Structures are given as C-alpha cells and as structure tokens.
Simulated assay, not measured.
Amino acid sequence: MFTDWTEALEAEALPLDLNPAQQLAAAARVTARSSRDKDDMALLLDVLGLPTDTDTLTALLPLIPETGDAPTMTNTPAAPALSAFEAMAISMHNNGDSEQAIREATGLSETELSDLIANHVLGLPRAAADAPTTDVPVVALPVSNALQELIDWATAHPTASVRSRAARITSDLSELSERRDSEAAQREAEAEAKVAKARAELEKAQEELRTVKAGTRTTTAAATAPTPIRAGLGSGRTREELAAVRTWARANDHQVADAGMVPKRVLKAYDAAHQAPVRKAG
C-alpha cells in the first residue's frame, strides 16, 4: 500500500522485466522507508534476506523517515513511528498471511499484533495505546549473565511494548522459580515421609524377628529336656527306652538279653546314671 501518489507513479513506471539486482535494490529502498532507524532497517533487511553490508546501509540511511523526536509546536502528539517488525506485520496482514505466521516471522505477541492491527489497519481508537504506560519493575532473578543482560536491555528499551514484554518475562520467570522451589520442597517432604515409613516398618520387622528368635530358643530348650519315663506295664518303659537301656548296659559291662525283661539292677543303674527317679514295676 502506497502512502502518496508519487510513490504509486514511480512504481507504475518500473519495467516489468527487472533483473534480480534491481529487484533487490527496490526491495531494500521500500524496506528503508518502512524502518524506524538504522538498527530496525538492518534487522528487517536481514529477515528479508537482503544485503546488510555497510555500504548498503549507508546508502539507504537517508531513506529512513524522520521519527519526529524533536519538539513541535502542535498540541496533537504525532503517532509513533512503526518499527521494522511492526511494518512487516502490517504488510503480511495486508497480504492475507495468518496471525500465527505473522507472529512467527516478526516475534510479536498476540496482544501486540492485535493492537497493531486495530490501530494501524482498522483505525480503531488509540485510547489504550496513547495512555501513559507504567513501567513494571523488573525483579532480579538468579539467571545467566546473557539472559540478565537481555532483560536489562529490554527493560531500558525506548519502546513501551518491549519494556512490557520484559516485565512479563520477568514475572513468568519469577512464577516458574517459585513453582520449582515449591515442587522441590514437596518432593523432599514426600521423600522424608517415605524414609520415616520405611524406618518404622524396619523396626517393626526387627521386633518381630526378635520375638520369633526368643520363641525358638524356648521351644528348643523344651525339646532337649530329658523325656520323663512313662508309667506302664512291666518296667514302665517303652520299647525304645528299653533299647536305650540295653545299649547303655552293654557299654557299661552289664549283662542283658536281647529281648525280654531287663533286670531291675540294670534299670536302677541306668536311672542312677541318668539322674532319673527309680520307677517301680507294676
């Protein structure tokens, strides 16, 4: 879109068979006229893939429009000059590009792009844009030097939208830092709770093990105690006990038969040797 009739006539007079060099030169001139300053012009030329060498920038510098920073006698404030990225966004919008494509190409946020289109394309009232802006203080965060330098640069930028973006980024970083610390504290508390639970279960298991061991010792002592001689017919001893008596008698030079009754003298000697009470035969 041309801003005056002279530019339209110049464009109409251009030949249709331009060579690439002429096309690049024409694009560079249009870019320079849409730039706010030398830095914006260099950035936009680089984005469009146009030459950005020192000679080209020096030749295009006179084409950059005046920003109107000098004080004027008029009471109506002049509209702020568009940056290279804002001019590029308006051009892409006029060409029918989607908002997503425009934001990706220019780096503008959704709010900035909406305000730009409303103010410079739709012609809506600029009350919000003209209202005095209040700079949000940037809170220092434990970030890298490069990131902190970038935030400091954006905070001191003359463009209000850049300063607002720096404030939003700082706020987001602060919120993320608080959330990280909160989640870390929660994970630490959960880990401590798990350790305490595991320690309690271990102590309980050790107590049960000690109880089992104490019960095992009692059972073993009862199992190793001498078996009392049961009263019954004859000698009152079972076949197994009589067999043990015969084995002991032979080992101690007592004469016993392989079967039948065991003499009482042998039984008494056996009982005396094993400190067992002498039992009378039935």
Rank of each mutant, 00 (worst) to 15 (best):
E10D: 15
R237Q: 03
A272L: 12
T238Y: 04
A78H: 01
T76D: 11
A269N: 05
L173V: 00
G68W: 04
S161D: 04
L24F: 01
Q255Y: 13
A13S: 13
L233A: 08
R210I: 10
A89L: 14
S91N: 09
A154I: 04
T76L: 12
L24H: 06
I151H: 09
L108N: 03
Q255E: 09
T6P: 09
H120P: 05
I102N: 08
L150W: 00
M41K: 06
P65I: 06
A127V: 03
T54S: 02
E66Y: 06
D37L: 07
A269I: 10
S91W: 10
M92R: 15
N95T: 13
A167L: 09
E178Y: 04
E201C: 11
T133A: 10
T67A: 14
D37G: 07
D4E: 14
T247C: 07
T220V: 09
H157L: 11
T247F: 09
E12A: 14
D39T: 13
L242H: 05
L150A: 04
G236F: 03
E201T: 07
A28N: 03
E207Y: 10
A21Y: 02
N252I: 01
T3R: 05
I229F: 04
E10I: 15
P20L: 01
V256G: 05
E192Y: 12
K194Q: 14
A32T: 09
L122M: 11
R165Q: 10
E112K: 09
T238K: 04
D69A: 11
A11M: 03
A243K: 15
R199M: 03
P77C: 05
D152H: 05
A196D: 05
P142A: 01
R165K: 08
V162F: 05
L176T: 01
I117D: 02
R168D: 11
A26G: 01
K213G: 14
A84T: 15
G260R: 05
R165M: 06
L44K: 08
T218L: 13
K264S: 14
A276S: 02
G68S: 11
A214F: 04
R210G: 08
Q186G: 10
A25Y: 00
D4N: 14
L82G: 15
E201S: 14
K264V: 13
E190D: 15
R265P: 14
P62R: 04
T58Y: 04
P263C: 11
N94C: 11
W153R: 13
A70G: 07
A13I: 11
D258L: 06
L50M: 01
H254Y: 12
D115H: 05
G123F: 08
R103H: 03
Q255L: 12
P80M: 03
V121H: 03
A129Q: 00
D181L: 05
D55M: 13
D135W: 00
E104H: 10
L202V: 07
R199E: 05
D130K: 06
D37C: 08
A25P: 00
A225S: 10
A21V: 01
A214L: 07
T3V: 13
A221V: 05
L113C: 13
F2K: 04
A193F: 03
Q255H: 08
A154W: 02
T220A: 10
A198I: 00
T247P: 11
D181E: 01
S109I: 01
T56Y: 00
T220I: 08
T6D: 11
M73I: 15
L108M: 06
R33V: 14
L242F: 04
A87F: 15
P77R: 02
A191N: 05
V139C: 07
P228M: 09
P158M: 05
W153P: 13
E208P: 12
